[in-house]
Every structure is written in C-alpha cells, then in structure tokens.
C-alpha cells in the first residue's frame, strides 16, 4: 500500500511565529473570544479559500486556479465553527492514508488548535486504538442523528466518533446510495439508536461485533456475544436484546417507538432472518446481560 505519511517538520517554526502576533498568526495570549478575534483577524489578512472534499480528500483551489498540493495544505489552517460558535483555526499537521483502508481512499488528518496557553493541541480525542485523527466529510448531521446530503457543507469528524468508526469499517457514504445508507445504519448501530431519533441506549466502551450481508464486515465467531439487532438507516429493523438493559429494557424501547419494533423483538429477531431482509444493512452482536 502506498504510504505517504507527511509529518509537519516546521512545527517549531510555526509555533514560534504564532507566539509573535503578526499578520496571519494568532497571538499566543489568545483565549476564548480573543481566539475568535484572532481567527477573524487571520481570516482577514489571509484569504479564506473554499474547500471541497472528494471522499475524505481535501481539495483546495487557490486564487490562481490551481489545486493546492498536499505540501501546501500541511500547516494550513482550517476555519472551523464548532456547534455554530465563532470560527476558530484548526491546523493541518499531517495527512496519512488509513492503514485499515486497502485502497488508500480514506485519508486521516492530524489536526490541532491553540489552547489558552498558545500551545497547539490535537483536537481529536483518542479512539480505542489510541489514534487521534480526524477527517473531512460532506453533508450535515441533524440532532436526530440523520446524515443529510450536502456537498456545500463539510464537517470534521474524529476517528473516536461513530461517523469515523463506520467510515473505517468500510461504509463509505460517497460511493453510492447503498453505501450512504449502510454508513447511516452503522452510526445508528454504534449509538444503539434503536428508534432512529437520536436517543442512544448504549454507553462508551461497550464491545460489539459488526457484520453485514454484503460481507464488508464479515461475521466472525465470538464466544460471549449474541446477535443483538439488525439495522437500517432509520434505526433498528429488529431487536433481539438491548445492549445495556439498565438504559432501557426491550419493553422500554418498544414503548419508545412501537411503530418500528412491535412484533420485531426477542425471538422474532434472528440473524438468519435479518440477513435475508433487504432492509437490514448492518447487524451486530453484543453481550447478553
């Protein structure tokens, strides 16, 4: 596999220049609203260029019409608005192909922003493998966990989140409609969002085993895990047992969305039947408690 991990060698230089307030460099003293002022100031002094993403690849067209190279993107600062707040600057420190991807199509970005002391710190929390990487994906995520197509909107996600985990499992929403739906179904599954309304019935750190009828994630035998549910883009297609019973029993969950799950729980929900159901795009196992 082609590997082109490119670390930002000029990190020290960049931090040093950032410590001296100058055109285009945020002050080391900035924090809170001052940081936002710095973001606005930097944006005023250095032109904010629009971006597009192709899959997870960041494409920047420069003012002269040419496309920025990867070297030019390294060290560049993304202008990011978190939860609608004033924009802040997020620096691109490295770009690398995902080692879990066999075709090099998924790029992971090391991203950092300045903390209150002026230090650049990784913006992504560590995932279960300790990896702190982010990536860019087009579309909008609603409060109910729905992924809406929108090429004009690009969002940052981290490998530690459901969106990132599903992408790295091989569910790539940009490939075709089915993959878009599989990715959406996968995020519902990881969050145990049985009703497809954004309510999560799991908790962080819960082990599950994922597989699907297309064989992107293959069913592998597990000792302690039992089939839990089959999933579509709008939530569970059927539910054998709840992942975390303390967060909701079968009865609680059916009560929350009877139109979806009545008559489709317990022994009425099997992996064999789900694999033959075209509405079931991904399936999972979890520990029965």
């Amino acid at each position: 596999m082609r590997s082109h991990v490119v670390r930002l060698l000029s990190l020290v230089v960049v931090v040093a220049s950032a410590c001296e307030p100058s055109a285009g460099s945020p002050s080391s003293e900035v924090e809170g609203e001052h940081e936002h002022e710095a973001a606005s100031s930097a944006a005023a002094d250095n032109e904010v260029l629009p971006i597009v993403v192709e899959g997870t690849r960041l494409v920047v067209r420069k003012t002269d019409g040419t496309i920025a190279t990867e070297t030019e993107i390294l060290g560049a600062k993304l202008v990011v608005s978190v939860d609608g707040r004033a924009p802040q600057l997020v620096r691109v420190d490295s770009i690398e192909e995902d080692t879990k991807s066999d075709d090099g199509e998924i790029l992971l970005y090391e991203l950092s922003s300045q903390d209150a002391t002026g230090q650049w710190v990784n913006v992504c929390p560590a995932d279960p493998d300790g990896l702190q990487r982010g990536f860019l994906l087009s579309g909008t995520w609603t409060k109910t966990g729905e992924h809406l197509r929108d090429d004009a909107n690009i969002e940052l996600s981290c490998t530690s989140g459901a969106v990132g985990k599903c992408l790295r499992m091989g569910y790539r929403p940009w490939e075709n409609d089915t993959q878009f739906a599989r990715h959406q179904a996968c995020t519902r599954m990881l969050r145990a969002d049985y009703c497809g309304n954004g309510a999560s019935y799991t908790k962080n750190g819960t082990l599950i085993n994922v597989f699907d009828p297309a064989g992107i994630q293959k069913a592998e035998p597990t000792e302690d895990l039992r089939f839990e549910a089959a999933w579509g883009p709008d939530g569970a297609v059927c539910l054998h047992h709840p992942r975390i019973p303390e967060n909701g029993s079968l009865e609680d969950i059916v009560r929350a969305c009877p139109e979806r799950l009545t008559g489709r729980t317990g022994d009425a929900c099997t992996a064999e039947a789900a694999l033959a159901d075209p509405k079931a795009l991904v399936l999972n196992e979890s520990r029965m408690r």
């Binding site: 260029l49 971006i51 993107i73 990011v80 954004g198 967060n247």
Partner: peptide, 24 residues
Amino acid sequence: DAAPGPSKPQEATARVVGIILDPS
C-alpha cells in the same frame, strides 16, 4: 458515567468554513 435511560450523543458539529494556506 451515565444515568440510566437513553441519552443524546454529545458529538459536537464542527463545520469547516474554509482554509487559510500558510504563506510561508
């Protein structure tokens, strides 16, 4: 870590507005 019952995922929405290339 969590009260019993369903919860709302706390993943923030980070919208990328654009990019400023490093002039150096």
